[in-house]
């Protein structure tokens, strides 16, 4: 599903963020990306979503080489990826329903079909009752689940999560990870960046550790 070949990313202001990174992630795999903040976890995820372009090296996602992807194809690439952020990135001037519907609305799907899928996604994260609410009215854990519903509503084959439980207490974090396990069971590929190493160690999934932009440990395919 994801293949990095000698990928480096250098920012003009901050210098090297990733150095000569090579790894591959199979379709259906669930993997954790760990390391201190500033180790390059977010940068790696941004390269996959084409929010950033690599300085060197080749990235192939879902069989497509991202280097050859023209700008106008980027939106269609992103539609096949569900992205989850630490700060949720929800729009507070719209309802929960509208937030979750966003990835479907941009594809030009009909209203009725959107309604079905949005409710299914909200049901999956257990927040069907809040579709009319504004995100600000919800707790941080609930907001993150809305963010997850938005990421899965278009049924993408790949989900990227950047510190999805960074602001949550352990109990709420567990709920989030349970959700990820459920997606994993139905065949979705997940790459989750987190610095919560203890929890990750208890889960039976692949762990890749980044340190100063290099891949220093990889527990390999499970």
């Amino acid at each position: 599903m994801i293949e990095f070949t000698h990928v480096s990313k250098r920012f003009r202001e901050r210098g090297d963020a990733l150095k000569d990174l090579s790894f591959s992630l199979q379709a259906g795999e669930m993997a954790f990306l760990t390391g201190h903040s500033g180790a390059g976890k977010s940068t790696l995820l941004k390269l996959i979503g084409l929010i950033e372009r690599p300085t060197r090296g080749q990235i192939v996602v879902d069989g497509r080489s991202l280097g050859d992807l023209p700008r106008r194809r980027i939106p269609f690439h992103r539609r096949r990826i569900g992205m989850i952020f630490q700060d949720h990135r929800l729009l507070n001037d719209r309802s929960v329903y509208d937030n979750v519907a966003l990835p479907l609305a941009v594809t030009g799907m009909s209203g009725r079909e959107i309604g079905r899928r949005v409710r299914a996604a909200l049901d999956q994260v257990g927040l069907l009752a809040f579709e009319r609410a504004r995100p600000v009215a919800l707790s941080s854990g609930e907001q993150q689940r809305i963010g997850i519903a938005r990421a899965v509503v278009a049924r993408p084959p790949l989900i990227l999560a950047d510190e999805p439980t960074g602001n949550l207490d352990p109990e709420l974090s567990s709920e989030i990870y349970d959700l990820f396990e459920r997606f994993h069971e139905v065949g979705v590929t997940l790459l989750i960046a987190t610095h919560d190493q203890e929890r990750v160690a208890r889960m039976a999934h692949r762990i890749m550790r980044l340190h100063q932009g290099r891949l220093v440990a990889d527990s390999g395919n499970w």
């Binding site: 269609f76 992103r78 539609r79 992205m83 990135r89 278009a154």
Partner: peptide, 16 residues
């Protein structure tokens, strides 16, 4: 700004 950024992240085209 923020709404546009999020729209782009979920795959909105420039035209959208």
């Amino acid at each position: 700004r923020e709404a546009i950024r999020i729209l782009c992240l979920v795959g909105a085209t420039a035209a959208f």
